[in-house]
Computed example of a mutant assay.
Amino acid sequence: MTSAACKRLVSILKTPTQATQLDLSEWSQLVAGARSANLAGLLAERIAAAGITVPAEATRHLEALRQLSRRQTQSVRWEVHGLQRALSQLGIPVVLLKGAAYAVSDHPVGRGRLFGDIDILVPRNALGDVELRLMVAGWTSAKASPYDQRYYRTWMHELPPMVNVRRGTVLDVHHTILPLTSRHSPDAETIIRAASALPDLPAVRIPRPEHLLIHSIVHLLHEGELHNGLRDLFDIDGLLRTGASEADFWPRVVDASRTLDVVAPVAFGLHLAAHLLDSPIPPHVLADMRNAAGGPASRLLTMLYTTAIRPENEAAESPAATLARFAIYVRAHWLRMPPHLLLRHLAHKSIVRLKKDEPAVEGRA
């Protein structure tokens, strides 16, 4: 987040009235950066809410983005109703995660958010029945290779991604929030039991505010892919700002972090939000989390994320961001797997990549 363009995007998302100072070229750069960071819908909503005068050329783009965000939100809600029909007879809670949870609960973080896939969390002992019901409803696995199937089913926290054969929608079915081989072992049942039911969707649940925040943080810090890193950071900022309106929110965050065995990542995630977005986190909360995590946030890790989190169009042109992202990618895999599994997995992926790069041989099928 070191470039002037990225800093301007962040600053205007936080204080939209600053956009009145932009000329047309800067508006063009702002919208392009927001699109690249997957924050264009949020930018459009915040500019509209501020009621400021916007050049006509930018207005067309921003209004189109607002409409796109709203259509995507409607599509997500429609898909969730389909999941209700497909899974309700199992008699299990289906907990929505991340974007789907924001969209269906009309959470402020969902306003202007652009969506990719849909994430749900179900009890692990129901995975087989859930997968079967989803297949009957038109979902199929997006991973064909036996290795990928084994990788997800043996080591990961989710089934292989599923794609709807009619609509192309991607669904991630989680049974916990971190890989089974991770150095942290969160108890997903804690999140499932505490989730709130929806009146018109009896099978569907929304996580507690502290669990939404914690999952967003661990996703950002353990995923290893930062193409949506800035968007995810703004999700975290919005979740903590909304949650903080509840008097006991911060004690619940601290307690839930301990219960779920994710104190260290949550402590660093809160530090990162305060450091990069000036998120309003009480100093005593940061101190309590820092002490529980065993010490202050790593300066090196802070520097890596500060360098790496930026719109994709900027990251691609920055050797420093590329290097920082690679270091974060390696760290994420190190957190996901013990060394022997990590070496085996990376070796397999390298071989597969080399085979794909081999020139075609005439006469081979």
Rank of each mutant, 00 (worst) to 15 (best):
S185E: 12
P186K: 09
D187Q: 14
D187A: 13
E189T: 12
T190R: 14
I191T: 04
I192K: 13
R193G: 00
R193E: 14
S196K: 12
A197R: 15
A197Q: 11
P202A: 11
P202H: 11
P202W: 12
V204Y: 11
V204E: 08
R205G: 10
R205I: 11
I206T: 05
I206M: 07
I206E: 05
P207V: 11
R208V: 04
P209L: 10
P209S: 10
H211Y: 13
L212E: 14
L212M: 15
L212N: 05
L212Y: 01
L213G: 02
L213M: 06
I214F: 04
H215Y: 11
H215M: 05
I217P: 03
I217M: 07
V218S: 06
V218K: 04
V218P: 01
H219T: 06
L220N: 03
H222S: 14
H222A: 11
G224K: 10
E225K: 14
E225I: 10
E225H: 12
L226K: 02
L226T: 02
H227K: 14
N228M: 10
N228T: 15
R231Y: 04
L233K: 04
L233S: 04
L233W: 06
I236G: 03
I236P: 01
I236R: 05
D237Q: 11
D237W: 10
R241I: 14
R241Y: 01
T242V: 14
T242E: 15
G243Y: 09
G243V: 11
A244W: 01
A244K: 01
A244S: 15
S245F: 00
E246D: 13
A247I: 13
A247M: 10
A247C: 03
D248R: 08
D248L: 10
W250N: 06
P251Q: 12
R252A: 15
R252G: 03
V253K: 09
A256K: 00
R258N: 08
R258K: 15
R258E: 13
T259Q: 14
T259N: 06
L260H: 08
L260C: 08
D261E: 14
V263E: 01
V263H: 04
A264K: 14
P265Y: 09
A267W: 02
F268T: 00
G269C: 05
L272N: 02
A273H: 05
A274N: 12
A274L: 01
L277E: 07
L277F: 09
L277G: 02
S279K: 05
P280Y: 11
P280I: 12
I281L: 07
P282L: 07
P282E: 04
P282M: 08
P282H: 06
P283E: 10
P283I: 07
H284I: 07
V285K: 05
L286T: 02
L286R: 14
A287K: 09
R290N: 05
R290W: 00
N291D: 15
A292N: 03
A293W: 13
G294E: 06
G295H: 06
G295K: 05
P296Y: 04
P296E: 11
P296R: 02
A297M: 04
A297N: 03
A297Y: 04
R299W: 00
R299H: 07
L300H: 08
L301S: 02
M303V: 01
M303W: 15
L304G: 02
L304R: 02
Y305G: 01
Y305R: 05
T306E: 07
T307R: 10
I309H: 01
R310H: 06
R310V: 06
